[in-house]
């Protein structure tokens, strides 16, 4: 019997705010889907990460709508959006901002970089030098930027949507494991199905629906929603399940690198948001199972044998999820 309560669950579960959240989420989702049709799960994952205060890595071939998704999400929420096109010559200060000497005031003045926005779109992140990559990733984790000894906190909500192209890898700097670990989820959008692609030709043929997209929620709404998500109840059984899952990746023979404790934390937070999007004030194993691959797969490294037998980490992870018994009966 489950009697445990999460530390956030003692407050009266704000059902109205959950309803509200779901309503807002529906609106945002509908708005985004006018741009990205036929990919509700990718949109839902993006929303989940937004509400769980994480960052997304979208890894896919060119032209499937990575940037469109990021832009649509940013547009449908009335918040600041900045886009950074990562190139090999991009410097860290091009992201964080620089202190410039103001001749009139005769003092140094901080010129904030593109990172100072609610949603930052980092396009082709693997094309930047590791130094620049790490500058971005540091601010992602800390949610603040320090320049010349002064710390500038970033606005909330803050989400980085980074894209990466797995095909053209020449001249790129693939993200090392430590930095991939900072992204809450990695998703790939994939090609649309036949009908969706037909619909896309119709709607995108003359003008971009992105231009017609009107904000349906405000940044302050998102901040409230993030707070509401924190109150979603996570029972002891679910926490145990998450730990079991993470441990299973560490002991699986097919993997030589398992999921980190940060991964467990991300999975927990994402599960909360996922449950909230479902208008539930508690997390169920289905949430964790649905999120296991997007949240964990990009952090795992296959063993040599698995590479030879072409067992990709997401396949191994799916097998683990299917095999791992739920705690209790």
């Amino acid at each position: 019997m489950v009697t445990d309560t999460d530390q956030h669950a003692d407050a009266a579960l704000a059902s109205p705010s959950l309803d509200e959240l779901a309503e807002v989420a529906r609106q945002v989702s509908a708005a985004v889907q006018t741009v990205i049709s036929g990919k509700p799960e990718a949109v839902r994952l993006a929303l989940t990460v937004l509400l769980a205060e994480g960052h997304i890595l979208i890894e896919d071939v060119p032209g499937v709508g990575k940037t469109q998704l990021a832009k649509a999400l940013a547009r449908s929420i009335d918040c600041s959006v900045r886009r950074v096109q990562f190139t090999p010559d991009l410097l860290p200060s091009d992201i964080t901002g620089v202190s410039a000497f103001n001749q009139e005031l005769r003092e140094f003045e901080f010129k904030p970089g593109p990172i100072f926005a609610n949603i930052v779109l980092g396009d082709e992140i693997n094309r930047a030098s590791p130094k620049t990559q790490s500058a971005l990733l540091e601010s992602m984790e800390e949610r603040q930027v320090t320049v010349d000894g002064t710390t500038y906190p970033l606005d909330r909500p803050f989400m980085v949507i980074a894209t990466q192209n797995p095909v053209e890898m020449e001249g790129t700097y693939p993200l090392p494991e430590a930095q991939r670990d900072r992204f809450m989820t990695r998703i790939s959008i994939g090609y649309p199905d036949r009908d969706s692609e037909l619909a896309m030709l119709d709607s995108h043929g003359s003008s971009s629906p992105l231009d017609d997209l009107k904000p349906v929620a405000h940044a302050s709404d998102v901040r409230a929603l993030v707070l509401a998500v924190r109150d979603v109840h996570v029972s002891a059984a679910i926490r145990q399940y998450i730990i079991d899952l993470v441990n299973a990746t560490r002991s699986a023979a097919e993997l030589r690198l398992g999921a980190s404790p940060r991964a467990a934390l991300h999975l927990l937070r994402a599960s909360r948001a996922y449950a909230a999007l479902d208008e539930r004030d508690f997390v169920i194993p289905d949430d964790v199972q649905s999120l296991a691959v997007p949240v964990l797969a990009h952090r795992l490294l296959p063993s040599a044998e698995a590479m030879v037998s072409r067992d990709m980490p997401y396949q191994v992870l799916s097998a683990i999820v299917q095999r791992l018994p739920l705690p209790g009966r």
């Binding site: 019997m1 169920i284 289905d286 199972q289 299917q322 095999r323 791992l324 018994p325 739920l326 009966r329």
Partner: peptide, 29 residues
């Protein structure tokens, strides 16, 4: 909660008796 658990386990057993077994990783939903 006790009633819910009892009902669930009873249903699981009933269905297992008819060859509809639940896998250990399957959530109630």
């Amino acid at each position: 909660a006790g009633l819910a658990h009892a009902a669930w386990r009873e249903t699981i057993d009933d269905l297992a008796d008819f060859g509809l077994a639940r896998t250990p990783s399957e959530s109630p939903r």
